[in-house]
Simulated scan of single mutants.
Amino acid sequence: KGKVERFNRVVDSFLSEVAVEKPDTLDRLNELFQVWLSECYQNKPHSALGEKISPESAYRSDRKPLRFIDPDLLADAFLHCETRKVDKSGCISFLDQKYEVGLSFIGRQVDVVYDPSDLEELTIEYEGYTPWKARKLVIGEKAGKRPPLPSHFQKQEAESSRLLKAAESKHQERQIEQAPAVTFRTVWKEDANNV
């Protein structure tokens, strides 16, 4: 906590001084802060480090050389990984986009390694295979608009109902079959006086 408090005092003293200077732009304010940080904090002797030793000189006098991590290794450390199943077309669905993986992986689970800030290209990993890149599936010109149907397949306007005509025909057949039967209605119509 002491280091943080000391740094906060340096920032507070800078704010007091910069208020007098009144910089016009943010860039100028940042330049002045870098100067203040360098001269009044990093290169100023610190009592805990010994006589006339600044944090900057103590840092630079370390006998162990600085080690820098390999940029590719660092980039890989911040990648995300998820598992997806390859569909029947050899593609995976990832964040509402289709990516072509390959027909030989249909039905298999593959690992998708990706950078969340760049989803144009994904790295696909599968055991026993060298990782490869998968790009967004772009539907080409051959899969464009469907050609028009021939005229005999086109939708035709109906002039009458085929179902209703078939029902009417069946009804007439049924009436002919039932005509010989005696019904109360037919008797009433034939001789209304003898009932």
Rank of each mutant, 00 (worst) to 15 (best):
K142H: 03
K145Q: 04
S117A: 04
G140N: 11
C91V: 03
K136P: 04
F78K: 13
S93I: 14
D111K: 08
I139S: 11
I139A: 05
E120C: 10
T123F: 10
Q109T: 10
I139D: 01
E125K: 10
I139N: 07
F94D: 09
L122D: 05
R135S: 11
R108F: 08
I106Q: 13
T83L: 11
F105K: 00
C91S: 08
L103C: 03
P116S: 09
L74C: 11
R108N: 14
E120S: 11
K88H: 08
L95R: 15
R146A: 11
L95K: 15
F78M: 05
A77I: 01
K136V: 15
K85H: 09
R67H: 01
G107A: 05
F78T: 15
D76Q: 08
L74S: 13
K85F: 09
R67C: 06
F68Q: 13
E120T: 11
T130K: 12
V112D: 07
K133F: 07
S89N: 14
D111N: 13
K142Y: 02
Y129W: 03
T123G: 01
K98G: 08
T130W: 00
D72V: 01
Q97Y: 14
R146F: 08
V112P: 04
K98P: 02
H80N: 11
T130Y: 05
Y99E: 01
C91Y: 01
G144N: 14
S117I: 07
V113Y: 00
K88A: 09
H80I: 09
G144M: 13
F68C: 12
Q109V: 10
V101T: 08
K145S: 12
D72K: 07
A75V: 12
F94Y: 10
C91F: 00
P71V: 10
T83M: 09
R135C: 11
Y99D: 01
P116F: 05
K136M: 15
R67L: 06
D87S: 10
G128W: 06
V138N: 07
I69Y: 14
V112W: 00
V138P: 01
R67E: 08
R67N: 02
D118Y: 13
T123N: 05
Y114K: 11
A143Q: 06
A134I: 07
K85L: 10
A143H: 06
K85P: 04
C81T: 13
F78L: 06
G90F: 05
I106C: 10
Y99R: 00
G144D: 02
Y126R: 04
G102I: 06
G90P: 00
I69C: 12
L137R: 07
R67T: 04
C81L: 04
I106A: 07
L119G: 05
I92H: 00
T130C: 03
D76F: 04
G144V: 02
V113A: 04
L103E: 13
C91Q: 08
E121Y: 01
V138Y: 03
E141F: 00
F105V: 02
L74A: 11
A134N: 05
D70H: 15
C91N: 15
W132S: 15
E82N: 12
E121G: 01
F105Q: 01
K88P: 08
A143T: 08
Q97T: 09
